[in-house]
Computed example of a mutant assay.
Amino acid sequence: MNTDFLVKEQVINALQFRHATKNFDNSKKISEEDFNFILEAGRLSPSSLGFEPWKFLIIQNPELRERLKEVSLGAVSQLDTASHFIIILSRTDVRYDSDYIFKHMKSVQKMPDEIMEFISNALKDTQEARGIINNERALNDWSSKQSYIAMANMMTSAALIGIDSCPMEGFNYDEVENILKEENLIKGENWKPSVMVAFGYRKEDPKRAKTRRNLDEIIEFV
C-alpha cells in the first residue's frame, strides 16, 4: 500500500478520534516516553520568526490543581482526572527591541549581528503595521495566538498515539496568574497564562459522532 496514503489515513483517523475529553480515566497514566513525545511536538512547533514565545507548565501537584479548580470552572473535571495538565504561558516581552528577542536570536538561533539587525527591523515593521508595537496587551495577544499552534500540535500528536486531550479557556486569567506567581511559577512580569490543555485517556467514548460542516461550506478558491 502507498506510504503517503497510510500517513494521510493515520492523520485523518487521529483527528476523527480526538474529542474534547471532559472526564479522563484517572487510573491510567501517560508514560514518560509518550508524554515527552507530546512535549517535543510542542517544542518543535512554528512561531513567528521562530521566537518561541511560550512556556509549558506541567501541573502535576495535587494541591496546586485543587487551588486552580477554584478559579478554573471550565477545567474542574480535567484537573481532577487528567494524567497530565499543562498551562501554556505566553511572553509579554516580545517587542522588536526587547532583550528577549535579541538574546533568542543570539543564543538560540545563532545569528550574526547583521542578520539580527535585519530581523529586528523586519519585526519592527510587522509590529508597526499591525498596530501593536506600543501596546503590551496586544503584544501578549500576538504571543498567545502563537501558543495555540503549539497546543494544537501537541493535541494532534497525542491523538496519533491514542492519547486524549482537551483544550480549555474557561478560567479566570488574572486569578490563575496570581496563583502561579504565589507558587513562584511565574517569575517577573514577562509571562501570562494563555491556555490550558489536559492529556490522558478517556473514561468513556463520546456520546455522539463528530460533526463538522462540509468542506465546500468552509473553503473558497479564488
Rank of each mutant, 00 (worst) to 15 (best):
F37G: 07
F37K: 12
L39T: 09
L39D: 10
A41L: 09
G42R: 03
G42Y: 06
R43T: 08
L44H: 06
S45Y: 11
P46L: 14
P46R: 13
S48E: 06
S48C: 13
S48V: 13
L49E: 07
L49N: 12
F51S: 00
E52W: 04
P53L: 10
P53Y: 08
K55I: 02
F56I: 09
L57R: 01
I59D: 00
Q60D: 15
N61D: 15
P62Y: 08
E63F: 09
E63T: 09
L64W: 02
R65L: 11
R65V: 03
E66Q: 14
R67D: 03
R67M: 11
L68D: 00
L68G: 01
L68A: 02
K69Q: 04
K69L: 03
K69D: 01
L73Q: 14
G74I: 07
G74H: 05
A75C: 11
A75K: 02
A75E: 05
V76G: 01
V76D: 00
S77M: 09
Q78T: 12
T81L: 03
T81N: 00
T81G: 01
A82H: 06
A82Y: 06
S83N: 03
S83T: 06
H84T: 07
F85L: 08
I86K: 00
L89W: 10
L89F: 12
R91Y: 05
T92S: 12
D93A: 07
D97H: 10
D97V: 08
S98P: 10
S98C: 05
D99T: 12
Y100N: 06
Y100M: 08
I101A: 02
I101E: 00
F102Y: 14
K103W: 13
K103Q: 15
H104I: 05
K106F: 05
K106G: 03
K106P: 02
V108I: 14
V108G: 07
K110V: 09
M111Q: 13
M111W: 05
P112H: 08
P112A: 05
E114P: 04
I115A: 14
E117G: 09
E117M: 12
E117V: 14
I119W: 07
I119N: 05
S120A: 11
S120H: 04
N121M: 09
D125K: 11
T126P: 01
E128G: 02
A129I: 01
A129R: 11
R130F: 12
G131M: 06
G131T: 09
G131Y: 08
N134K: 13
E136D: 12
R137L: 12
A138F: 10
N140M: 06
W142S: 02
W142H: 10
W142N: 01
S143V: 00
K145S: 10
Q146H: 06
S147K: 01
Y148V: 02
I149D: 00
A150Q: 04
A150Y: 03
A152G: 13
N153I: 02
N153K: 09
M155S: 08
S157A: 15
S157Q: 15
L160H: 09
L160W: 09
I161V: 15
G162K: 13
I163W: 07
S165I: 08
C166K: 06
C166F: 08
C166I: 06
P167W: 07
M168P: 12
E169A: 14
N172H: 09
N172I: 07
V176P: 00
